[in-house]
Amino acid sequence: MAKPRIYATSFASVYPLYVAKAERKGRTKAEVDEVICWLTGYSSDELAAQLQKEVDFETFIAEAPRPNPDRALVKGVVCGVRVEEIEEPTMREIRYLDKLVDELARGKAMAKILRTA
C-alpha cells in the first residue's frame, strides 16, 4: 500500500497554512507554535530548525523528541474521520496536529487545547 502524499509534503510548506488559519480567527503564530511543541516535544528552537530543514511530515513526526503522552486525549473528527480511530500511527499524529490547530482556530481556550483543564 502506498503512503499518503501528505507524508512526502514538507512540514514547512503546511506550517504557514496552520498559522494563517489561526490568525484569521484572531489567534497567533506563537499559539500555533505552542500547540505544535506541546504535541511533539520540540522546543521552539528545534521547531525552527525542522522548518529550516524543510523536512517532510513523516520525518517531522518520526523525529519528534518527546511526543506528549496526553496527545491520546485528542478526540474528534478531522476530514470526516475520527482521530482516535486512525490506526496508522504517522497519520494519527498528523491528524492530532490538524485537530489541535482546528480547536485553536475555533477559539477554544489554550488550557483545553493542551488538555490541562
Rank of each mutant, 00 (worst) to 15 (best):
K108H: 09
D33P: 00
R95W: 15
C79M: 11
P4K: 01
P16T: 05
N68C: 13
V83A: 09
Q50F: 10
S10I: 00
L51K: 11
P4Y: 01
L97N: 07
L73T: 02
G76D: 01
E85R: 10
L114Q: 15
P4V: 08
R24Q: 14
S44L: 02
S10E: 11
L114V: 12
L114K: 15
G26K: 08
P67K: 05
E63K: 13
A109I: 06
P69R: 12
R115M: 08
R82N: 02
E34C: 05
E85I: 05
E84W: 07
K112S: 15
A72M: 03
E63C: 01
G26P: 15
S13P: 01
R66E: 04
L47F: 09
I6S: 08
Y42H: 08
F60T: 14
R24N: 13
A8K: 11
N68S: 07
F60N: 05
K53I: 03
T9L: 07
V74H: 03
Y18E: 01
R92I: 03
L39C: 10
R5Q: 12
K25F: 04
V74T: 15
R115C: 11
M110T: 04
Y96Q: 04
F60R: 02
S43Q: 08
K112W: 10
E87R: 10
P65G: 01
I6A: 03
L47V: 09
E84G: 14
P89F: 05
V19C: 10
K3P: 04
F11W: 06
E88C: 06
R95P: 06
Y42P: 13
A109F: 09
R24K: 15
A105D: 04
L73C: 03
I36P: 02
T116C: 09
E87L: 08
V101M: 13
E103I: 00
K53A: 14
V78I: 11
W38F: 15
L39W: 12
R82S: 12
G80T: 12
L73E: 06
A12D: 03
P65V: 02
K29C: 08
K99A: 11
T90C: 03
E63Q: 13
E54S: 15
D56T: 04
V19T: 07
A49P: 15
